[in-house]
Each structure stands twice: as structure tokens, then as C-alpha cells.
Design a protein around this nucleic acid. Structure first.
Lengths: 174, 174
DNA sequence: CCGGGCATGTAATCTGTTACATGATTGA
DNA sequence: TCAATCATGTAACAGATTACATGCCCGG
């Protein structure tokens, strides 16, 4: 699922502006997706040109006008096709594991620091998901709640795994 | 860590050709990294131009000549700088979780199929790591063994998590 | 005789981010 | 007064992949 199809999926739930889509990418979707304005706005224009969405301008005073995008039947078709395609996972690059692979080349202090940085990062990710509890309770559909719970367990597992690694590292020097 | 620095790290352990580096990316590093020839060969050329590696041609008959690359002191410096930089994790896109977020839009059959596909994928990943057992026992340094063990637990957790998700999904229809 | 392994490389393409540009309002 | 929020957009760049091009040897 590229950004375009993810946007179509979001518009299927509710018509939105590019700005609001960005906020969704930064909150509800932040754990497993993301997008910058530089990719959202061009994608919306492309979709409009191809008839996948319609745009309606909402005039505002004081603030810039809002361009609200609605998905079309053609857009829905494209989105569903993407959802039904065989699942192909593009090889994902894990920065932490790559560095761990080369731990022999740095000092003990640097090793410790890297693991602690990673644990800090994971704590931040965990908070990020926890902050979605409200969304999960109020606006999420049952499957999005599964998604939320899956994410929670995923981070918990990662943290436990990293702590174990930390322990193993310490035990090596005994 | 971009591909260039990963290559430098590998050359620090042992001088290699681009072809051999590709094999490493496809085996030992496959779980958390990856690279195509189209990125490896240009990276090696760039490194040579910048004095980060030296090249020695090994003439072969029957087969094409091998270009063996050796890391230089300058190359080692660059690699270590990369290792010592603050850990920054670029937001990673999870194809499966993205689709799960939109499960409400597809049929029950398609939902089941997607989860099963993901479990198949994870089983493949698990096999991929298991196939490194020999490497871990013979050629890996102690930290690479930690990396290997971390990876094993990571997939195991993911599989358990996905099975739980599967169960939760089934329980929804009761 | 054909596919796969060995071995190198380039060009076109893709998909996205970062940085820049604009500009009004609101709250600390 | 200064930063943040609302709101849209473009241009330059980055970092890779895919497909193509070459060519010999070996085993089934």
C-alpha cells in the first residue's frame, strides 16, 4: 500500500483535506505508516486528475480555504484492488539491528548507549500508541481496535526483547 | 546506516567483491537489511573515488575477473562515525498493519486470507533466520550471535502476536 | 540446449522526504 | 513579539530498485 492508496482508504471513511490527512498520518497511522505534505498534496492532485476523488472548496475567512476531497466509485475500486492484491512485504531496513551486527567494532560504552537509545525510542513509540486509546474507544472500528492491540503487543514484545538483549550483553562481560 | 556504511562495515571484517557483498546482504543481513547490485556497485565506485576503499583486481580464467575491495583508514573512520551517530529510526511502513487498519472494507474471506498470507510470510522469515544457524556457530562474533538471537525472538513474538490477532478476529464473529 | 552460477556494470524509474514559499490568526 | 496552528503547494534532492546489457562455464 503506497501513500495514494492509503489516502483513498482514509477518504473512504470520511472526506478530508490534505491537512487533516497529514494529522491522521501523524496520529492514528503513525505506528505503521506516515506521509509528508510533499507527498500528500501531489497525490491528491493526481487522484483528482484520474477521477479517483472529487474536490470541494470550503471558503473560510481568516484561515486559508479548505479543499475537501471525496472519494469516487473509481477511487473505491482502486483502493479495494490494492487491498485484495497478494500481500508483498518490501524488505524493511532495521537501523538498530544493523548497528547491533557491527557491535564488535565499537566500545562497550557506545554499545550500552545504543541500546539505551533504542529503549528510549521504543518507550516513545509505546507512548505514541497509548495516546491513541481515546481514538480506539470512540472512533475506531472493531478492526482498527485489533490493529491498535496488535501494535501495543508489538512494542511490548520489542521492549522485552531489547531488555533481554541488554541483559545478555552485560552477562558477556562476566 | 545507509548501504554505503553497511558495506564499509562488512569490508572491515573481510575484503570482498561486490558479488560477495550481495550474497551477504541476501543471507546474514537479510533479516534487517538488503541491497541490490544496482546500489552495491555504484557505492563501491563512489567509495573508491573518495579513498574509503582500495580495489585489487584478481584475474580469473573462465570466470570474469574479481574486483576485491579493501577498506582504508579513511573508510574505517567514516564507518565508525556512522556507528557513533545518535540512533535515528526512520519511520517504517508496515504493509500488513496498514491493511489491517482497513479490514472493515473487505470481506471476511479476504481478511482471513491476508492474515494467513502474513503468517506464511513470517514462517519464511523464521526459516531464513534458522538457516543462519551455521553462520552463527562458525563465523559470527559474539555480538552477531546476539543479533541472531534477537532476530529469532523477534519473529517468534511476531508469529505469536499474529496468531493472537487471528484468534481475536475469529472471536469477533461469535 | 538451456538454466543457473559467476561477475560486473549502467540507465531509467520510482517513491518519497526536505526545504522553501506564502500568509493570516491566536495564545503565551 | 514570537511560536504555533491552520492551510496549500512546488522544486530539488535522496536513496534506492528494476530492467537491461554482457559473457563464459558447468551440469542435467
Amino acid at each position: 500500500m503506497n501513500i495514494q492508496n492509503t489516502i483513498l482508504g482514509l477518504l473512504l471513511k470520511e472526506p478530508q483535506t490534505g491537512y487533516e490527512l497529514k494529522q491522521l498520518f501523524d496520529s492514528s497511522l503513525a505506528f505503521f505508516s506516515g506521509a509528508s505534505f510533499g507527498s500528500i498534496y501531489p497525490a491528491l492532485k493526481r487522484c483528482e486528475k484520474e477521477g479517483l476523488v472529487n474536490m470541494e472548496m470550503e471558503l473560510q475567512d481568516g484561515k486559508p480555504n479548505r479543499k475537501v476531497y471525496y472519494i469516487t466509485e473509481a477511487g473505491k475500486d482502486i483502493f479495494l484492488k490494492g487491498m485484495q492484491e497478494e500481500l508483498t512485504i518490501s524488505p524493511y531496513r532495521n537501523e538498530f539491528l544493523t548497528r547491533l551486527f557491527f557491535f564488535a567494532d565499537i566500545t562497550a560504552k557506545e554499545r550500552t548507549h545504543l541500546i539505551e537509545s533504542y529503549l528510549n525510542y521504543l518507550a516513545m513509540r509505546q507512548e505514541q500508541i497509548h495516546s491513541l486509546a481515546d481514538f480506539a474507544k470512540k472512533k475506531a472500528d472493531p478492526y482498527q481496535i485489533l490493529c491498535y492491540r496488535f501494535g501495543l503487543r508489538f512494542v511490548e514484545n520489542l521492549i522485552a526483547n531489547t531488555r533481554l538483549l541488554y541483559k545478555e550483553l552485560k552477562d558477556m562481560n562476566k
